[in-house]
Each structure stands twice: as C-alpha cells, then as structure tokens.
Design a protein around this nucleic acid. Sequence first.
RNA 1: GCGCCUGUAGCUCAGUAGGAUAGAGCAACGGACUUCUAAUCCGUAGGCCGUAGGUUCGAAUCCUACCAGGCGUGCCA
Length: 647
Amino acid sequence: MDIKSQISRIVRHALLRLHPSVDGLGDPRITFPRKKAHGDYAAVCFPLAAKVGQRPNEFTEALARELESEEFFLEVTPAGGFLNFRIKPSAICRMAVEAVLAEGSQYGSSKRHASECVMVEYSSPNTNKPLHVGHVRNNLLGMSLCHLLEAVGYRVAPTCLVNDRGIHICKSMVAYGRFAKGQTPATTGEKGDHLVGRLYVEFEMAVRKEFRTWATGPGQEDLDAWVSEHRAELDIAVASARRKAEETGRKPPAVEDVKIGRFYDAKGQEFFASKSGLGEEARDLLRRWEAGDPEVVELWKTMNGWVYEGFDETYKLLGSRFEKVYYESETYLLGNSVVDEGLEKGIFYRKPDGSVWIDFDDPKLGSKLLRRSDGTSVYITQDLGTAIEKFRGFDLDLSVYVVGAEQIYHFQVLFEILRRLGYPWAKDGLYHMAYGMVYLPEGKMKSREGTVVDADDLIAELTARAREKSLSGDLRVAREEIDKTAHQIAMGSLKFFLLSVTPSRDMNFNPAEPISLQGDTGPSVQYAIARINSILEKAGALVEKPADLGSLDRPEEVELAKLLLDFPRSVEKAAHHRNPALICQALLALKDAFSKFHHNVRVLAGKGEPVDGRPELASARIALCQATREVLIKGLALLGIEAPARM
RNA sequence: GCGCCUGUAGCUCAGUAGGAUAGAGCAACGGACUUCUAAUCCGUAGGCCGUAGGUUCGAAUCCUACCAGGCGUGCCA
C-alpha cells in the first residue's frame, strides 16, 4: 500500500472514533502541501468539517489531538481546514528504497486489470503520403497508451488499420503514369513513401493548374459570379495576404491568384468530381481497381509496396509495433452485410434514390448516410465491419481508437450505430482516444500542399544534433556506441516533447526552433540516469556493501524518496486518464529532485571511496540512486523511450 | 447557423477530481565546473488565469452570457 493510502487509513480510523455516528463521512484527500515548510503530506478537511457541522479549524484541531499518539507521524499540525503531517525523514527514505528495490522493474505496475484484454488501434496511415509530426504524435500516443495499459494489468493488442484503398492512392497512381513512368525508389533514391507522396502532391498541383485553366476560360462566368458574391471575404483575404507578405518580407500574391485560390478552396472538390479530366482518370482507376483489373491492381500493389517499405523504416525508428494489421482493401466490404442487417432490423431505412440512412434520437447526431445511392459503401460502413471483426478475432473487453479529435463526431456516430445494432460490447467497450492537432506557426499542415514537417527529416535532424552534442564535450560514449546513443537521445527528445502535452489539446510546433535537449526534456531525464550509472560504476564494491537506510535523512534525499513513493499513483492515474503527459510530469519532478540531490549530496569521496569514510551511508545513498534509476527507466519505458548507458 | 474543443508569463506548457501566497522549461539578465559528467545547479525579472456576471467559507478549475481561435456539421476519409 502506498504512503498516501496508509495516511488515509490512519485518519479514517481516527475519524471513526471521533464521529462514530456520522455516516458516509468519507476520507480526506491526501496531498503534498503547497509549501514544504507545512509538512510532508496534508489532508484537505474542509468538506468533512462541513459534513460534521464544525468550523474547519475546530475540526482539524480535534483530529490532530486524536492523531497525536500515532507513531507513524512525527508531527500533526492543524492549519485551518488543512491537517499537515510530518513523517520521520529516514522512515520515508527507507520505505521508498525498500519498496522500489523489492519490486524492481515491476514497481509502479499493478494487476488491477489482469484478465482483461484491450485492443489499441493507432497509426492508421493513408498509403499516399509519408508520415509527418501529426502522425508521429499519434504513433507515440498509441504506443505509450499500450505500455500504460499493460502496466495496469491489461493484455494489450496493438493494431493498425491501413487505409490502402480509395481515391487518394489512385491519384498517386495517375500521377505515376503521367509524370514518373519507370521511376522507382531504387532509381530515384527516394524512400518509397516519399516517392508516392511526392506524386500525390504533383497530382494535386496539376489539378489546381487544370482548375485555373478552367476558371480563366470556360468557367470565367462562374468565377466572376462567385467573386462578386464573396467580395467582402475576398478583400479581407487579400489584405491579410499582403500583411503576411510584408511581415515575412516576401512578394505579396497577385489579387487574381488569391481570388482563384479561394475559389478553389470553395469549389475545388466539386470541380474535381464533375469537370476535372484528372479526376475522371482517378475515378476510372478506382472503378477498375474495384473490378479487379489486373493491370491496375498490379500497379496498386507495387506502389503500396514502396510505401510499406518506407513506413517500416519510419516505424522502426519510432519503435511502433503492431500485433495485427488490418487493410481496408480487405475490410472495406465487411460493412455491407451490417448495413443489410440494420435494414432488416428496421434500424436503417432506404430513401427513394436507394441510399441507406439512420436517424438518431439525439439531435446532435442528426442522421447519417450509410450507403450511397449508387450502392457503394462509405467510410463509416467499413468501420462498422472492422469494429465487429475486431471483437470476432479477439476476446476483447475494450477496443480503443487513437484517432484525431476532428473525428469525434464520426466515432460518436459509429459507436451509437453499433449500440443500436445490439452488440453487447458496444455499450462500454469502445473508446475513442481523441488527440489534438499539431500546428505549425503558419497553421495546419497540409499534405496536399506539401507544407508538413516530415517525420524522417525531423528524426534525422535531431539525431545529427544529439550526435554533435555527444562529440562536442568529453566523449563518454564508446565510438561504436555513438550512433545508437545519438538515436536514443534524439528519440528521447522527440517523444518526450510530443507526449508531454495533454493529448486532448492541440499543440504548437515551430520547426524553426529546434526541440531542446536541455530543460524539461527527455534527454535531461536520460542524463540523470547516465549520471547514476556513472556513480554506480565508480562505487565499485560499495554497491554490494550492507546499507544503513536509516542514515538517509537529508532534505534532498527525502524529497527524492517522496516522489519515488508517489510514482505508482502517477502510473495509475496516467493509465486511467489515458494521459502519458502525467508520466512526463512525474519524471521531470523526479529528475529535478535527483539533480538537486546530486548537486548537494555526495555519495563517494573518490573511486570506490565512501563519503565521510562511512561505507554504510554511501551504500544507502547508492541504494537510493539505484531506486531512482529503476523508476526513471520504468517511466521512460512507459513513454517508449530508451535510456543510453552513458551520455 | 448549429455542435464540440481551447483561451494561464514574450514563447511552449503544467496546475494533481473546488483548497494554502497560480508553477515549470525556453528566451532575457546575474552567479556556480582543480569537485560522483555544466544535457546540471542557484538567483533576478516576468501574471486583472480571454471579458463580464453567478454558485461557494473558498474558483484558473463549476454555471450563464459574450469575445477570440480551432475542429466538425447528409452521399470525403
């Protein structure tokens, strides 16, 4: 039992003695006091005092007297509605070190959800473009969530749903035929996903050009009409483009370009669907693919193959791992029978044009299309099939989707449909872990326009910087280890950076300001581990000597111990709230406490020499260091971060 | 229009299920390496917690309205 629970239990017994007749008084919340001078732990008593009908100070004074004789506390002080506790410093240190070293790498884990199985779907890329920082955030959240859920006992199945079919990949295929005949990753030296992504961008550019030709020719009337209708909006757009150009010192765009650009934003999709020759080509490829045209399928396979090779490389860098991969080309038909089933049950209905719909009771959900009038399936249809498939293939208690917040509505609808269809697990076995966007200073990233921060580039740049920094000082790392170490540090900085923001929030990322290696960062946590390793190496035989844990009573040691004791709570909470950022916070607090300890408290007088000539004290401090290292490594592992032995 | 999310230091973010005098890091300024690695430590400065009301002994946190930004919103995924 952790220390806060112990305190809570002792207080509960005292309360039962003091107020035996009050039912459901509850426990006071045990926290760290805001100021260390107040004590080691504090109980917040305002709500309980109110229930008993006493003034807060009256209540806590009586409670303090009742707890006076408790041996567990050194001191119990009432302070208004707070009750502050002081505990013998060496006792805290002893508890912490013994608890951590007894459990080792299992410290912080629990069996709370043992015998439960959860599937976590994450990453889920489209095969028409390489991964960017937004995808990286997704991958890291997914992996970290897997680790957190495992830590509280779940059996976890990480999965990925690859969107390998549809109009987007057909666009790249059209571009391949038109602009890149004969090119392969081998001939261009490009990574496969980058090659296909480049073709996708080229296709989009070509459509824009096609649109421009139309808008300044046969579509001129439409353009003029639209422009006069959106006069005010356009004036603002032109003005803001000018302002932006002035700020950045670039040439302002021509008014004509802004007009056509806006017109494209508004009508581009419509144009693509009805007037674009390129659009017709792409749709034709999609039709031929669905009909199984061998030539099209062959090209599709080849290009997807290039993309997978590229993804595999990036996944390897990130450490992404999947137990099961679903491909939409295999699952996209699964939903159709579900739609038929819903029609039979009368949950869905058919409109005269043949399209299939569902109306929801909740007006916020409105109604939703489930099958197009031409009989083809839509996005949500295949998701219905895949959701059911997951529960068929695995004995799941929970199915998690790590997907961006822009799809909150989509998942509300998906889950509600599955509930209406009567699947028992749909009641509380589905969870959408929605996370926020990663914004660049200039706004949202757009793959189509090529304004993205590429994952591979970012990793490469960080690795180069970590390597340079390693080489710049005393080289602690063995030469042959430097590549691995630089990679670990680079990934430590990237992962920690992206995971330290609360998942549900949007976050900003400025590529011009590189991710820091100093301050509240992953590398600073890794560094603390490297320093501990260094001490342990130099300690030699002292590591094995008997330790007198009772001699640990310095404030720096107690602070460290308190945080070690609090770590399991952080894990529990992070798993419960599905929020890895809570682990980041716990690690930073721990790293801070260790740095202060390390700065002010010596372990060794020299190599193998105990401080103050006291081996039992040195060994105790060594044990505290070992416990700290254990927890730091565990915490980083929960984030999917490795710690290099030396830095 | 409607719905959901977000407004905390110059920047990036915390703020522990309503609790004590709102905290870090970066950037700025000033200190600390003959010392277990300076990816560290110590200090200074920086805040009408978007605005206005309300609930409460107590509000950054809960409620209402407004302002600003983002996302979504019937045949895209």
